[in-house]
Write a protein that binds this DNA or RNA. Structure first.
Length: 366
DNA sequence: AAAACGGGGGC
DNA sequence: GCCCCAGTTTT
């Protein structure tokens, strides 16, 4: 069968059946999620940003904490960015937190603290792309805006038995057209939440529960018994091994920390001196460690002693992080506007936003 | 079109 | 160990 990227034509009766059956299924099976308590666009937006590339269960505690700290968009806009990042700590993809804060300021200064009921204006906010704009417009305002994300990419690929690569540009274009064709003029809020919910609970990546699916009779892949033949909706990542070192430099009781600058990993967060190293393990040359601490901070150290090896994986990286403690012997701090560097009491680390491994090191020395 | 983003959960 | 996750932005 030839692959077609043409816009799908979905017959009106099938479209109606899909909408009706989804509505009935969602009424019976919708999870009781914190951000479904009401349709406040602020809550919808906050949850959508947090849910980008992040699973529902992971988001729940962060959502509650954020809402408690910043009940309204005005509270968020008025907060220091450091506090926003501190509350985001551990959620990853910290650009989302910086965008969230920046967007709150835009909403207050340019939209009177209100969310625009307009797709283009929403998408103009930092961190809001086509999906998130559609999600806010539909879920909060019930506007008939299409959405396309992990769950619905998979569901629509199967519903239409799309034979091409769903992750390719033509595939994405095709699937957006499916979303546009299906979203109803009324009730888009429930519809869009329902397709995501069905994708999350029934139309799963592996072993989809077609027997329990309300769209089994409307699903081309199921009807053709071709669910397993379609191409995967996510790309495989090639993992890269990385060796890094972090050094807790002491000057008396105080330790050396620096704020990661713009364009740098963890921009806005604080970190111990950290850098890539050639060789793995605690036995690599002290010279390399000393040299790189000096390069990064201006401070001379000696007597580096191995603290612990942390292994962790993030996105495509498999990281082996060797952590050390060392004492300052000489040198002046090299602190810049982009990357402030200073000595602090370890007790103060609790107030600074750190990466997950940074926080682990802080606990080790606390 | 591809890579970066630098966390976590499930099996 | 591998796969996946309510994507967006930059290169």
């Amino acid at each position: 069968m030839p692959v077609t990227d043409d816009a799908p034509t979905i017959a009106a009766p099938r479209k109606r059946a899909v909408r009706r059956r989804l509505k009935g299924w969602f009424a019976a099976h919708a999870r009781d999620l914190p951000w479904r308590e009401n349709r406040d666009p602020y809550r919808v937006w906050l949850s959508e940003i947090m849910l980008q590339q992040t699973q529902v269960e992971t988001v729940k505690p962060y959502f509650a904490r954020f809402l408690a700290a910043f009940p309204t968009v005005h509270d968020l806009a008025a907060a220091p960015e450091q506090q926003v990042l501190r509350l985001w700590e551990g959620l990853g993809y910290y650009r989302r937190a910086r965008g969230l804060h920046a967007a709150a300021k835009v909403l207050v200064s340019e939209h009177n603290g209100q969310f625009p009921r307009d797709l283009a204006a929403l998408q103009n906010l930092p961190g809001v792309g086509r999906y998130t704009a559609g999600a806010i417009a539909s879920i909060a305002f019930d506007l008939p805006a299409p959405i396309l994300e992990a769950n619905t990419i998979r569901l629509f690929t199967r519903l239409t038995a799309y034979r091409g690569d769903p992750t390719s540009t033509p595939g994405q274009k095709y699937l957006w057209r499916v979303a546009e064709a299906l979203v109803p003029p009324e009730g888009a809020s429930q519809f869009n939440q329902a397709v995501m919910e069905l994708g999350a609970l029934v139309c799963t990546p592996k072993a989809p529960k077609c027997d329990a699916c309300p769209l089994a009779k409307q699903c081309e892949a199921n009807l053709q018994d071709a669910v397993e033949l379609l191409q995967p909706t996510t790309k495989k990542l090639k993992f890269v091994d990385v060796n890094e070192a972090a050094v807790v430099v002491y000057k008396g009781e105080q330790v050396l920390v620096r704020q990661c600058g713009p364009g740098e990993r963890w921009s806005g967060l604080w970190d111990f001196p950290r850098f890539a190293v050639e060789s793995e393990g605690p036995l690599f040359a002290q010279d390399e460690l000393t040299k790189k601490v000096a390069e990064q901070t201006g401070v001379e150290v000696r007597g580096a002693s191995h603290l612990k090896t942390l292994k962790h994986g993030v996105t495509k990286h498999r990281i082996t992080l060797d952590c050390y403690t060392a004492k300052r012997t000489a040198g002046r701090l090299k602190s810049t506007a982009d990357s402030p560097t200073r000595w602090i009491d370890p007790a103060e680390l609790g107030e600074l936003p750190l990466s997950v491994t940074g926080r682990k090191i802080a606990k080790l020395i606390g």
